[in-house]
Design a binder for these strands. Sequence first.
DNA 1: GTCTATACGAAGATAGAC
DNA 2: GTCTATCTTCGTATAGAC
Lengths: 192, 192
Amino acid sequence: MASASTRHNIIEIADDLFYRGGFEATSFADIAVKAGISRGNFYYYFKTKDEILDAVIDRRLQRTRAMLDGWEAQAPKPRERIVAFIELLIANRAPIMAHGCPVGTLCAELAKLDHVHQERAAEIFGLFAHWLEKQFRVLGADEAAREWALHVLAWSQGVASLATAFKDEEFIRREVADITGWLDGRIASLSN
Amino acid sequence: MASASTRHNIIEIADDLFYRGGFEATSFADIAVKAGISRGNFYYYFKTKDEILDAVIDRRLQRTRAMLDGWEAQAPKPRERIVAFIELLIANRAPIMAHGCPVGTLCAELAKLDHVHQERAAEIFGLFAHWLEKQFRVLGADEAAREWALHVLAWSQGVASLATAFKDEEFIRREVADITGWLDGRIASLSN
DNA sequence: GTCTATACGAAGATAGAC
DNA sequence: GTCTATCTTCGTATAGAC
């Protein structure tokens, strides 16, 4: 297999395993086996575990940007874009109930490990926050845009957190409806 | 040192280390060193890592019950009791920004490890949920009590999650004010 | 109940052959 | 670029002396 695609393959598998089992609990051997390469070959691409974490965070940043861009392209109205974000909770309900939110759980784990890449992982949250803020600005919420963006983000994080603990799909749907209701209330308040 | 107090001491230290560094990342050696005993002696009290996790979860359940009972004893009005819960985010802001919410992060980690004690850890959330529900019932919210309880719990979890990622104290204070505002809005809606 | 010594395996990481 | 072999450290866990 060519160098670039093997490297890409490793990152893809590491991303998945880090999400499902956690960063620390995932070993090089786990990744190598799933990637179909030897541990020795693995080290040709990544010298340390931190290096692969770095690459995984890069990938997640890239994919998050692509997803946010996609929502902007698909939905012309900010409200529908924000709803697309909120409904991610429903679309990903099965993995969320099993493994939590990929961003929140990575940030939490890296915080406990006091890991150097802590801030880089938090940047993924930063992308969402900034994007949501932008949508609220387009809606006309100048001063409150940042606050509302963080509020939606926090709320969805809380739903993911409890959904992981209780494995309750109905709870997710109810909260998603509530967040959407809150959003429409905010939008309505802007036209007054 | 007597048996009971050594055992208690181990649990106390394990609880703290599990919170600050995570369950998996904390080794027996870490606990033994901090407890001032040898690893060999450690095994006299706990045969496996799961056994000590079990004891730590027990301790957390007990302490959570005691805290909830304390709030009920100190505040006669349900509103003030719920506010006491919400303001836990402010009281514990420093450790939350450094290590997250003890309950949420433990549940998330155990979910990733697919650990047998996953449900037992979630029981701690259950205690909070049940207690909050009870307070809302006293306020007269019969049908909505459960939903509101889970809502407050989820919201506070989300705040803890983002606070850990962004290390933003102002954000915590703002959200706590928002949750309290939401609470008063719900209470006001009950008298109509 | 507490200790030291030690077995055993897993995980990160390296060396060097092909 | 990919492999096998190996080193080293660390973590769980046990045995047995005191």
